[in-house]
């Protein structure tokens, strides 16, 4: 290889590598190419908190530090809700939503996404408390209403997202499409 050829190759390689970095730094990508639309169910709800309480025995109280001695001990949890979604009359989601946390004492979180063909669709969402307060337990706080429902017809556009969420102030499910 002549010195000129070597120098030319060296410069070409340096430029080529630099351009490759530039190209890989900006290569176009479409995370979702489909023409469908998306219905997104997402909300956070404070469920019905129930507690099971019992009185501590004198021996148990004795074992506790003085500042922690409370005569009653309560274990709380949030009641589960059932989420049902029907689209155009067909049930597509039917599942039990447990409250988050290892002891199910955190809020209830719903997050589901469904793809649909663009066009008009009848959507029916029901989010209802499952079961009653068991005997021996008591209601500690009032959270989300025991039953939420949304029954509507939407016009879903291609590559757009419709959000079904819970409006804490209105205490009902609402539909949002991102418009102000």
């Amino acid at each position: 290889m002549t010195p000129l050829a070597r120098r030319t190759t060296a410069i070409a390689l340096a430029l080529g590598s630099t351009l490759a970095i530039g190209a890989l730094s900006r290569a176009p990508y479409t995370a979702d190419r489909a023409a469908h639309g998306v219905v997104r169910l997402a909300w956070r709800a404070r469920g019905e908190r129930v507690e099971e309480c019992r009185r501590l025995t004198p021996e148990e109280l004795e074992r506790l530090p003085a500042h922690m001695r409370q005569e009653e001990s309560c274990e709380g949890r949030v009641l589960p809700y059932r989420l049902q979604l029907s689209i155009d009359g067909a049930r597509v989601v039917d599942e039990l939503v447990q409250a988050a946390g290892a002891r199910h004492d955190r809020p209830l979180y719903v997050y589901r996404e469904l793809t649909l063909q663009p066009g008009a669709h009848a959507i029916a969402v029901v989010f209802a408390r499952e079961g009653a307060i068991p005997p021996g337990e008591r209601e500690a706080s009032e959270g989300t209403p025991p039953r939420l429902a949304l029954d509507t017809t939407v016009a879903l556009l291609s590559r757009r997202v419709l959000l079904v969420t819970y409006d804490d102030d209105a205490r009902r499910l609402v539909l949002r499409d991102g418009s102000p």
Binding site: S25, R26, Y29, T30, R160
Partner: peptide, 21 residues
Amino acid sequence: ADLFRLPAPAPFDWFYAFWVP
């Protein structure tokens, strides 16, 4: 970014986003 649209075609940095696809 628009949370109410599916992600549009965009330039991606493959040195850091290679794992996404």
